[in-house]
Amino acid sequence: MSTSIGLLRGIGIIEGISYLVLLFIAVPLKYAAGFPGLVQIFGMVHGVLFILFVLMLVIVWFRHRWPLFSVLGAFIASLLPFGTFVLDARLRKKL
């Protein structure tokens, strides 16, 4: 993970996990069990990780001169459940 792309991959995986925990564990517990605490915690963690992902994506964009289409694809992947895992697989092939 010493390269900027490796760091992007690492942040993407952690951000993707936080997204899935929020979506499939915290939100159902909020509505099924009336326990909103996990949504508040994981929502904030996920938000910080998302911002870090976007900042790292901008750094990678400029350092590696990625085409705009690739940057937009990576950004859209970060908005979809499991999207960062698909992105990671594609980035692994590039390394």
Results as ranks from 00 to 15, higher is better:
residue 7 L to I: 14
residue 63 R to H: 05
residue 23 L to I: 05
residue 29 L to T: 01
residue 70 S to H: 13
residue 45 V to D: 10
residue 6 G to Q: 01
residue 5 I to E: 00
residue 55 L to E: 06
residue 49 L to A: 03
residue 79 L to D: 04
residue 38 L to E: 06
residue 27 V to R: 07
residue 58 V to K: 02
residue 77 A to Y: 08
residue 21 V to L: 15
residue 93 K to P: 04
residue 46 H to W: 03
residue 75 F to K: 08
residue 93 K to N: 09
residue 35 F to Y: 13
residue 81 P to S: 09
residue 82 F to H: 07
residue 89 A to L: 12
residue 82 F to W: 13
residue 29 L to W: 13
residue 84 T to N: 14
residue 8 L to M: 11
residue 20 L to K: 08
residue 73 G to F: 13
residue 83 G to C: 08
residue 77 A to K: 10
residue 39 V to P: 04
residue 90 R to Q: 12
residue 55 L to G: 13
residue 93 K to S: 11
residue 57 L to A: 02
residue 31 Y to L: 03
residue 10 G to A: 14
residue 5 I to S: 02
residue 26 A to I: 00
residue 41 I to G: 04
residue 26 A to M: 08
residue 18 S to A: 12
residue 78 S to Y: 07
residue 20 L to T: 05
residue 59 I to C: 09
residue 89 A to I: 12
residue 90 R to K: 14
residue 81 P to T: 09
residue 47 G to Y: 04
residue 90 R to V: 10
residue 36 P to I: 11
residue 15 E to Y: 04
residue 91 L to Y: 09
residue 42 F to A: 04
residue 84 T to Y: 03
residue 43 G to K: 10
residue 24 F to E: 04
residue 13 I to W: 13
residue 84 T to K: 02
residue 26 A to S: 08
residue 6 G to R: 00
residue 85 F to M: 05
residue 62 F to D: 00
residue 29 L to K: 07
residue 48 V to I: 15
residue 6 G to V: 01
residue 44 M to V: 15
residue 26 A to C: 10
residue 81 P to D: 07
residue 45 V to Q: 02
residue 85 F to A: 04
residue 45 V to A: 08
residue 69 F to Q: 15
residue 79 L to Y: 04
residue 44 M to Y: 14
residue 95 L to Y: 04
residue 25 I to L: 09
residue 88 D to A: 10
residue 47 G to Q: 02
residue 62 F to G: 00
residue 61 W to R: 02
residue 64 H to D: 14
residue 67 P to T: 03
residue 24 F to S: 10
residue 16 G to T: 03
residue 36 P to C: 10
residue 22 L to H: 02
residue 5 I to F: 00
residue 28 P to G: 08
residue 16 G to R: 06
residue 14 I to V: 15
residue 8 L to C: 09
residue 47 G to L: 03
residue 14 I to W: 06
residue 95 L to I: 14
residue 25 I to D: 02
residue 8 L to A: 06
residue 11 I to V: 15
residue 86 V to F: 13
residue 90 R to N: 15
residue 30 K to A: 05
residue 56 M to Q: 15
residue 42 F to K: 01
residue 26 A to F: 01
residue 60 V to D: 10
residue 25 I to N: 02
residue 11 I to A: 09
residue 75 F to I: 09
residue 33 A to K: 15
residue 46 H to M: 03
residue 33 A to M: 14
residue 56 M to A: 14
residue 89 A to Q: 15
residue 61 W to T: 01
residue 53 F to L: 07
residue 35 F to K: 10
residue 37 G to A: 15
residue 58 V to F: 10
residue 3 T to P: 00
residue 67 P to C: 02
residue 2 S to Q: 11
residue 52 L to S: 13
residue 8 L to R: 03
residue 57 L to G: 01
residue 24 F to H: 11
residue 57 L to I: 02
residue 77 A to R: 10
residue 64 H to Y: 12
residue 52 L to P: 12
residue 93 K to V: 09
residue 82 F to C: 06
residue 45 V to P: 09
residue 63 R to L: 07
residue 5 I to P: 04
residue 1 M to E: 03
residue 1 M to C: 04
